[in-house]
Simulated scan of single mutants.
Amino acid sequence: MPAPTNTFKQRLARGERVIGCWAGFADPYATEILGTAGFDWLVIDGEHAPNDLRSIMAQLVALKGAHSHPVVRLPMGETWAIKQVLDAGAQTLLIPLIESADQARDLVRAMRYPPEGIRGAGAALARASEFSGIPDYVATANDQMCLLVQVETRAGMEALDEILAVEGVDGVFIGPADLAADMGHPGNSGAPEVVEAIRDGLGRIAASDKAAGILAVDDKVAQDYAAWGAQFLAVGIDVVMLAKAARQTVKLWSGRD
């Protein structure tokens, strides 16, 4: 019995556009609700949301069997942290602040069992193997791992072509907010030079054998990103959706501007 098929990885490889959303509540109940909306993928965010290993695992459980594929974003690409979330059942990781091909290669190795990588082979204890219920997990898991790397600085953009050449990277995600800040436009990803960098980056990724990804909460901006080559496109953030709806309701009923 092999490791479960990573349908998200398959869809990226086929060139399908998949629409996603950020899950930032760090709570399985909220993520389960979001999973009923029909998004193709959801980011369980460990970088800017208050998640830990147990809350990430609980959300992976909540999404089991859902249409929405869980993408776990770690705050860093440490080998030990990657090992833990993979054993907890994640198959797709999004790792921030990648600025070189060497960093990307290290991540590929961290996500794979030997001889292709250095992932610890303690799968007997792991939720990923259904606690030894998948006898061929270690032998087959490597092919189901999906690595998405975030390029979000000037250094990362300068190294983009080298990162795109790394075997085992499935997609490259451009981080507009961090890129804008690094380019001297904090809080303004719509600055002309930032927009041009994003357009160029998405085009270069889309022209490669990797999938291009990005986040936009403005519909017009998201449409532009799609036209420029974004394949895995996030179009919402759950905490922002709640805050916006709550504020609009208060404004409607209180008469406040």
Rank of each mutant, 00 (worst) to 15 (best):
A177W: 05
C146I: 10
P176C: 08
N142D: 14
A141T: 06
A177P: 00
R204V: 08
L160F: 07
A126P: 06
L179H: 01
A141I: 04
E99A: 05
D178W: 12
A141K: 02
R127W: 04
A181R: 07
C146T: 12
F131W: 11
I98Q: 00
L148A: 14
M157Q: 01
L107F: 08
G175M: 13
Q103F: 00
G201L: 08
V138L: 14
S129L: 09
T153A: 08
A180Q: 04
F173E: 06
Q144M: 00
A139F: 00
A197E: 04
A165P: 09
S129N: 10
G203K: 03
A128F: 03
T153M: 09
R112I: 11
D143E: 05
T140G: 11
E158H: 13
E167R: 13
A197W: 02
P135V: 07
G122S: 14
R154I: 15
C146H: 09
A181P: 07
M111H: 00
L125R: 11
M145Y: 00
A123T: 08
D143F: 02
V151H: 04
C146M: 12
G184A: 07
D182N: 15
D200W: 12
D182W: 01
Y137E: 05
A165W: 06
A180S: 14
K210I: 03
Q144L: 02
P115A: 11
I174S: 03
G122L: 14
A159D: 05
P135N: 08
Y113Q: 11
V195W: 00
S189V: 00
G184I: 08
M157T: 01
Y137N: 05
R112C: 12
A191K: 08
L125A: 14
H185L: 05
G168E: 01
A159I: 08
R204Q: 10
S100Q: 04
L179A: 03
V172G: 01
D170L: 02
A177C: 01
M145H: 00
P176K: 05
A141M: 09
I134N: 03
G122R: 14
V151Q: 05
G117I: 11
I198G: 10
A139L: 06
L179Y: 02
D136E: 13
E167N: 12
P186A: 10
G190H: 13
L125I: 13
E152P: 04
V151E: 01
D200V: 14
R154C: 14
S189F: 08
A128T: 08
G120D: 07
E162C: 02
Q150E: 15
A206L: 05
Q150S: 13
I198D: 07
E130F: 09
M111V: 09
R127P: 07
P114H: 06
F131M: 05
D182G: 12
Q150F: 14
E167D: 15
I198M: 14
A165G: 08
A141S: 13
Q103C: 04
A180K: 05
Y137K: 09
P192V: 13
G201I: 10
S129P: 08
P114W: 06
V138T: 14
A206Q: 09
A197N: 00
A126E: 07
L147Y: 01
G117C: 09
T153L: 12
D161W: 12
L164N: 00
D106S: 15
P135D: 09
N142F: 13
A165V: 06
A165K: 09
E116G: 00
G171I: 07
D102I: 09
R154Y: 08
Q103I: 03
K210D: 04
R105T: 15
G203C: 06
D102A: 15
E193D: 15
C146G: 10
